[in-house]
Write a protein that binds this DNA or RNA. Structure first.
Length: 366
DNA sequence: GTTATGCATCC
DNA sequence: CCTCCTTGCATAAC
């Protein structure tokens, strides 16, 4: 069966939300920033609108560097408001979900969707549906988006990337190898700087090179699973389905400490709001956890973690605070240097609610 | 088989 | 000068 898989990406999401809220910003460079609180302007740019990108500003850039590049351009420097963007995102996902067979959100500003049935396997009908999705998002929230449509998730994701901003790229199965072939391997979903470098070393530069690579070479270099994935990705034949309603498997929060330290009590005290946030997420989603991890980013920016798994799911929350202190003490003694940043993570999540209807449906274990 | 840790990716 | 979050995997140790 001819699958029609889409990927939608909301354009420069955080900055565009700020523009919608305050249209005067549209005429100016806008950067949405994460301020770490260490010094006045320490932190990075999370999202920049295209006017700011014209001056070489991009996400991940230190705020200080971005300001320098934007000197004399009357830039708008906005503090990130995650909750605001969450609310907009949730409305959009709900809206788009009505227009597709299956929706799989993969981030606050993007989602995969499957429209094989509603397009009846036809790419012209698929294009119309994709256009109606873009139109619906724009009319309801005044936000532009970019969509890619193709035979697989990798092709769809690539398509949305090629079309942004405010575009639509339809890559039919017949055109797939022509479109993908000339691109550098790093354009493929799941292929970052490390994998790109390894591939380049053995003479694989483009997606076409990768598509005709020796499978056993790839397996030897990257392992069975990832090796097979790379080949499938390059030929556009990756067959992962679009899955709705995936549950989160972990919650985490990382903060930058006011000063470098290795004192576990100081770390945990600065982490208290983060722990509170995780507790709130657990409560809101009615979930328990089994593993708690301390995450330490040292002064040399290397990362060390220390975790503890409990026999049975933990519902209460004072456990996080207590265990964090122990774990950070252990980390500090083994780390050798101070912490610059610190985080906490809970994983092994499960629903706490008594699901009697579900247990009836599943039946009793033998 | 389960747990601990690090790595890579991506947002 | 260097934020923050999620997922999956490999590997070693238990």
């Amino acid at each position: 069966m001819n699958r029609l898989i889409g990927h939608i990406d909301l354009d420069y999401f955080y900055a565009q939300v700020e523009e919608v809220e305050n249209p005067a910003l549209r005429e100016r460079p806008v950067i949405v920033c994460v301020f770490s609180g260490r010094t006045e302007d320490s932190g990075v740019v999370s999202t920049a609108n295209y006017r700011a990108r014209d001056f070489g500003v991009h996400s991940g850039m230190p705020i200080v560097s971005a300001k320098k590049r934007l000197e004399g351009t009357n830039p708008a420097i906005v503090r990130m408001d995650h909750e605001k963007y969450e609310a907009v995102s949730a409305r959009i996902m709900e809206n788009v979900n009505q227009l597709v067979d299956v929706l799989e959100p993969t981030g606050i500003d993007e989602a995969f969707f499957d429209i094989t049935s509603s397009a009846d396997g036809d790419y012209d009908r698929g294009r119309e549906i994709a256009e109606s999705i873009k139109k619906s998002v724009f009319e309801s929230e005044h936000l532009t988006s970019s969509i890619g449509l193709g035979r697989s998730k990798v092709v769809a994701k690539l398509g949305s990337d090629l079309s942004k901003p405010n575009g639509l790229t339809v890559i039919t199965p017949e055109k797939t190898s022509d479109v993908l072939g000339p691109l550098p391997v790093g354009k493929l979903y799941g292929v970052g700087p490390k994998t790109s470098a390894s591939l380049n070393e053995i003479g694989i530069k483009t997606v076409a090179d990768l598509a005709r690579a020796d499978p056993s070479d790839l397996e030897r270099l990257f392992g069975r699973k990832f090796g097979a994935y790379l080949l499938a990705a390059a030929t556009g034949t990756d067959d992962a389905p679009v899955v709705a309603g995936l549950e989160p498997t972990q919650f985490s929060r990382i903060v930058t400490l006011k000063e470098d330290t290795k004192d576990p009590h100081e770390v945990v005290s600065q982490l208290a709001p983060g722990i509170g946030y995780i507790e709130a997420k657990l409560a809101a989603s009615k979930m328990s956890f089994r593993t708690v991890s301390a995450i330490g980013i040292l002064t040399d920016l290397s990362t060390k973690t220390r975790s503890k798994t409990f026999e049975t799911p933990v519902v209460g929350v004072s456990v996080i605070h207590e265990e964090a202190t122990v774990l950070f003490a252990e980390l500090a003694s083994s780390a050798g240097r101070d912490f610059r940043r610190a985080g906490i993570r809970v994983s092994g999540l499960a629903h706490t609610e008594d699901q009697s209807s579900l247990s009836e449906f599943v039946g009793t274990p033998r």
